[in-house]
């Protein structure tokens, strides 16, 4: 069973992703910020990471950069509800940092699942 790490500080959204992905037949590991996410990935490597971008303690871009430095083959989907500071489009930045797909919140369940499937199928020979 493919394992997906969900990093998201908003409890409701995290829960939504957990339910959505579990129903779709994936194992879900949850983390509430980038720091916890990196720790979780080190203890239990996953096939895919879905991360929010604006989070307390360790935000998403930094998390993506740090994770990809350590695990270069890592695949990431970035999600974000907007840009709090206004000046930078975090989602475009996430792409530059190596996210394979980006989603603006609120995203569509099916579109997200399609992109998850798409990324995980790249593993199949």
């Amino acid at each position: 069973m493919k394992r997906i790490l969900v990093i998201e500080d908003d409890g409701e959204v995290r829960h939504l992703l957990q339910v959505l992905l579990t129903r779709a037949g994936y194992e879900v590991v949850e983390a509430e910020d980038g720091k916890a996410g990196i720790h979780a990935y080190r203890t239990q490597p996953c096939d895919l990471v879905i991360t929010d971008l604006i989070m307390p303690r360790k935000e998403g871009l930094e998390t993506i950069v740090d994770l990809r430095r350590e695990f270069p083959d890592l695949r990431v989907i970035a999600i974000s509800g907007g840009s709090r500071a206004g000046q930078v489009d975090y989602l475009n930045a996430a792409k530059l940092c190596g996210a394979s797909h980006i989603f603006r919140k609120p995203f569509d369940n099916q579109e997200l699942l399609a992109s998850v499937r798409d990324l995980l199928e790249q593993d199949q020979p």
């Binding site: 908003d10 959505l20 509800g81 907007g82």
Partner: peptide, 18 residues
């Protein structure tokens, strides 16, 4: 506000779809 509101909308939209 937009950022926080999008999180709220996300939960409503996601769970409603489910």
């Amino acid at each position: 506000i937009a950022h926080d509101f999008n999180n709220i909308l996300q939960a409503i939209m996601g769970f409603t779809t489910l």
